[in-house]
Design a binder for these strands. Structure first.
Length: 493
RNA sequence: GGCGCGUUAUCCAAGAGGCUAGGAGCCGGUCUGCAAAACCGUUAACGUCGGUUCGAAUCCGACACGCGCCUCCA
């Protein structure tokens, strides 16, 4: 049983062997803070959150670094549009990012550095690159000379000649080679700047990640993550910078998450077909969004639509309903999960017992296989079905049934801790879902209650015709009635 | 133009040669005055054409369709 991860560099799943036994260093490219995050950011955040959680669960001492890119053309443009400074914009959207990610239940990384706090480190790397002949100064800018780095494009599996055939590369007159990229940009009037040996200016986009990862994780570390779209040029350039400057391997395992699609097309700022996390969370609860993201493998494309979110919500509701039923049985007690006697178990009880024993091994097997959360969820659902069956046939609780139920509950908490799910109290989550749905109807709760009372009276008088009329009336409003021995309640369909 | 990925039942989705994935839905059952909800059960698939193999959704080849990267992107 060992963790295997898909490494973009090799194009294969590889056994995960950390640089230092028992430890894992992980760097994930965060966001450029110039606008609210969209659900593509949510996916990247959730994906690497469960990778982080699973590495910890697997026993590694993990150092997780996720940066904020807080200086960039887009931030400056936004500041100019609003007539303010870059810092105001960056700080505003850093805060927004933190709020969004907290709502999605992301665990805090070990460090969340900002590019602008690492200008010194950035300058040191650029100096080293110049000294080694990998970079050159040109009219206040500094560029990386890609032809001096033979391994350039090894991550994306291209070559320089083919890239040029793409013909979308502009040949700047400051560059020696059209593919050379900026490490340092001389500041234009009105732009923020920092002092450097090459004059006042600011860092290029790629260099900050080389500087910050080296600062917190060293010259070589285990995992570097980000969206697929960062493979080229961002991560390719990071390799050129870090390996060019340090002369040793930069990253051992490159992990890239797939995109969120809208109607099978990539969702992106440039296409304008994106939804912000905030918009989505007005309609769906954060855990539903997280569950949806986890329902596909992290490298696969994920098609976003209301229908798919609805389905995710139904699935999550199924699990929470089961957990709520477990909590009712447990009724606040916390019996030992150890099973003392397993004679007397019915076939269904024996099956549950078997599922319980297999649960963690199967869960771990799924997650060990390149963090296959979708498969892991399948294991959870099998447990739900088996548990429901057991609860349905168990009329009275016994110490044995209680211990089985408690064991199941513990397992869901354990798996939920890795997936970042089931953190709410099941009853509260289900109630919250009902309340949220109730916000979408026109009828007031008082009016509904009045009609329910009238219907109950009619039914008591065996006037089922009138009772059914009221039921149909409410249903037309999207309100469905739930009759039970305790009376009638309602929810929104 | 170059490089790469994908195509699994009504929909979403896992699956790296022989083992019921799973979810949503449909349908059937339990429950109910009848329903609904809930629960249980059940159904069905591997883009096309070839090849390798005792055996292919899975490996190889061709084709078709879709998508991504090559420009800022998660």
């Amino acid at each position: 049983m060992a963790l295997r991860v898909y490494n973009t560099l090799s194009g294969e799943k590889e056994l995960f062997v950390p640089l230092i036994p028992g430890k894992a260093g992980m760097y994930v490219c965060g966001v450029t803070v110039y606008d609210y995050c969209h659900i593509g950011h949510a996916r990247a955040g959730v994906v690497f959150d469960i990778i982080y959680r699973y590495l910890k669960y697997a026993g590694y001492d993990v150092t997780y670094v996720r940066n904020y890119t807080d200086i960039d053309d887009k931030i400056i443009n936004r500041a100019n549009q609003e007539g303010t400074d870059y810092r105001t914009i960056a700080d505003r959207y850093i805060q927004a990012f933190d709020e969004d990610m907290a709502r999605l239940g992301l665990a805090k990384p070990t460090v969340e550095p900002k590019a602008t706090d690492h200008i010194d480190g950035i300058i040191r790397i650029i100096e080293a690159l110049i000294a080694k002949g990998h970079a050159y100064v040109s009219d206040g800018d500094v560029y990386y000379a890609v032809e001096t780095f033979p391994d350039y494009l090894k991550l994306s599996g291209r070559n320089l000649d083919e890239m040029q055939a793409g013909a979308r590369v502009e040949v700047g007159d400051k560059k020696r080679h059209p593919m050379d990229f900026a490490l340092w940009k001389g500041s234009k009037p009105g732009e923020p700047w920092w002092q450097s040996p090459w004059g006042n200016g600011r860092p290029g986009w790629h260099i900050e990640c080389s500087a910050m990862s080296m600062e917190f994780l060293g010259k070589t570390f285990d995992i570097h993550g980000g969206g697929k779209d960062l493979v080229f040029p961002h991560h390719e350039n990071e390799i050129a910078q870090s390996e060019g400057a340090n002369g040793c391997q930069f990253v051992r395992y490159w992990l890239h998450n797939g995109f969120v699609n809208i109607n099978a097309e990539k969702m992106s700022k440039s296409l304008g077909n994106f939804f912000t996390i905030r918009e989505v969370l007005k309609k769906f609860d954060p855990e539903t969004l997280r569950f949806f993201i986890l329902s596909a493998h992290y490298r696969s494309p994920l098609d976003f639509s209301d229908q798919n979110l609805d389905e995710a919500q139904s699935g999550l509701e199924r699990i929470y309903s089961c957990l709520a039923a477990l909590d009712v049985v447990l009724n606040g007690t916390n019996p030992a999960a150890e099973i003392a006697v397993i004679e007397n178990l019915s076939p269904v009880g024996l099956e549950l017992q078997e599922k319980i024993e297999q649960f963690i091994p199967r869960f771990v097997e799924a997650m060990d296989d390149d963090f296959n959360a979708a498969l892991a969820l399948g294991v959870l659902f099998e447990m739900v079905r088996c548990t429901n069956r057991f609860l349905a046939e168990t009329k009275e609780t016994t110490p044995l049934s209680l211990s089985l139920v408690a064991h199941v509950r513990h397992l869901f908490s354990e798996a939920g801790g890795v997936l970042g799910l089931f953190t709410s109290s099941p009853a509260a989550w289900l109630e919250g879902l009902k309340t949220a749905k109730a916000g979408h109807i026109d009828m007031s709760p008082d009016e509904i209650e009045r009609l329910i009372a009238e219907r109950s009276a009619a039914r008591a008088a065996r006037n089922f015709k009138r009772g059914d009329e009221i039921r149909d009336l409410l249903l037309a409003q999207g309100i469905q009635l739930l009759d039970s021995a305790q009376g009638t309640t309602w929810n929104v369909k």
